[in-house]
Computed example of a mutant assay.
Amino acid sequence: MRTFQRPAWSRAAVILLLLAGLAGCSSSDHPAEPASAVQSTPRPTASSTAKPALSGETVRDSFGNADFYTTAAGDTLAAVAKAYKLSEAKVAGFNGLQPGTPLVPGTRLRLMPAGPTRGAMGAATGDVNGIPTGYTIEPDDSLAGITYRFNLTDEQLAEANKVPFTYEKGNVFFIRAGRVIQLQKKPVDSRSGTGKEVTNSFGQTVFYTTVDGDSFDSLGYKFRSTTAQILLYNPSLAADQPIPAGTKVRLIPGELKIEGAQGSFTADANGIPLTYTTAPGDTERQIVFRFGVTDLRAANRPSRGTGGAWYEFTDLPAGELAPGQTISVALDRPINNPER
C-alpha cells in the first residue's frame, strides 16, 4: 500500500510561524508591488513637484510577484527601489550596478538575486521571460534562502508544489538535497475553484464538487493535493481525461486504508468521518492524514483536567496507538473518557 506521509497540519501551522529568517534577509527584502499599481484611482499629491509613478513594464511571475522592471525615461535606481520596497543597494547589487548609477530608458532591471545565494546554491531553470520555474535543492539549502532567491513566500512555494506547507523542523519533509521543486504554477482556467466544498469540523475540505474549468492542476493548487493523490482517492477519474463538471471529488484518503491507518470508521450522512477504530500499527500522524484532522487530541480530550488525549499508546515516541480503541475524528463530536 502506498503511503503519503504528511505532517499534522496543526503542528505545521505553528512551525511556520517560527521560521527563522535568512541572516541579512527579511520580509521587506522581497520585492513588492509599487503602491501605484494597486490603487484604482490616483490620489492627489501634496506638492506639484512630486514625481510620477513608474511607467515602465513590469514582468510578474505566476503569483503576481514582480521579478523584472524595464525602465522608462526619468527612472532612477532610487525610485525603482522605493516603488518595489527594496533598498537601492539591493537593486543595484541584483544588476551589477553601483548605487546612483544613471539608468538608460529600456534597461531591464532584476528585482531579485541574479544567481546562487546563501541557502539557495543549486541550479535553477527559467522560462523565456527569465521567470524561475524549477530548482534543484543542495545539501545546505534552507527555506529562507530559496524563497529569498526566487522572490516567493513559503506559502506560494507550497502551492506551486501542491503540498500543505514547505517546512518541518530539520528540513526533512520538503527541503531535501537532490529534490527538484517547482517555483511556479501552471496556468489554470479562471472558472476553476468555484465549486461547492464540504468541510469537516476542523475546517478541512473533504469533498469538492467540480465546475467547468476545473482540472487536476487547479484542484492540486487549491487543495494542496497531487494528481497521484487525487487519482488514488477517486478511482473513477483518469489522468488523461478531463474532470466532468459536477463530479464529487474526495480530497482525503477516507475509505482508502493507508499504512499507519488501517482501521475502520463511521461517517455522517454527508460522508464526513466521525469515529475511527484503531488497528495494529496505527499512528497519530497517519490517522490525522487519512481523515483530514488538524487536532486529533482535542477531539479526544479527557472529560476532566487539561491533560493530553485519553487514548492509549503502545509506542509513545513513534505515536503508535493501541489497537481496538474507538476514537473521535470530529472536533464537534469529541469522545471524552469518563474515567479521566
Rank of each mutant, 00 (worst) to 15 (best):
I146D: 04
D189V: 03
Y84A: 01
S55G: 15
T226E: 10
L274F: 11
A228H: 06
D217E: 15
A239M: 04
G119E: 11
D212H: 07
A144H: 05
N151S: 14
R118I: 07
F63M: 01
T41Q: 14
Y311D: 13
T227I: 02
Y311E: 14
K248C: 05
G203Q: 05
R285N: 08
G213I: 11
G246K: 13
K186G: 11
P334I: 07
D154T: 01
N336K: 11
N270W: 07
A46C: 06
A322F: 04
A123I: 12
P244N: 08
I272H: 10
N65E: 00
I230H: 06
L54Q: 06
P164I: 06
Q286L: 10
F150S: 12
V172R: 12
A239I: 06
F216R: 12
P42D: 01
D217C: 01
T133A: 06
G308A: 10
L251H: 12
A73I: 00
V188R: 03
P273C: 09
V211K: 09
N300E: 07
N65L: 00
D282R: 03
D217G: 03
K186A: 15
L54E: 05
S26T: 14
G106T: 01
R11S: 10
G145Q: 06
F63E: 02
A81R: 00
T45H: 07
G260T: 10
P244C: 10
M112R: 15
Y311A: 13
P317T: 05
P52Y: 06
P235N: 09
Q156E: 15
R118F: 04
R285S: 14
V329Q: 13
Y311N: 13
S48I: 14
T278A: 03
T125L: 08
V329S: 13
N336D: 07
T277L: 06
G281H: 07
V14E: 05
K248F: 09
P338G: 03
N151H: 12
H30N: 12
G100T: 03
A267E: 15
L143H: 12
F173D: 13
L237G: 12
Y221R: 07
G213V: 11
A89C: 00
T153F: 01
P132K: 08
A144E: 11
S27H: 09
N337T: 00
L86S: 04
A120G: 08
S225Y: 03
V180D: 10
G260W: 05
T153H: 02
S36R: 01
V180W: 04
V38L: 05
P317H: 04
E159R: 15
R297F: 13
Y276I: 08
L274G: 10
P116I: 08
G319T: 09
A35N: 12
Q156Y: 09
L103M: 02
S190R: 13
D332H: 15
D75A: 01
A20Q: 14
Q325R: 14
L237R: 11
V128G: 05
E320P: 00
L109V: 05
G145M: 05
G93M: 04
Y276E: 10
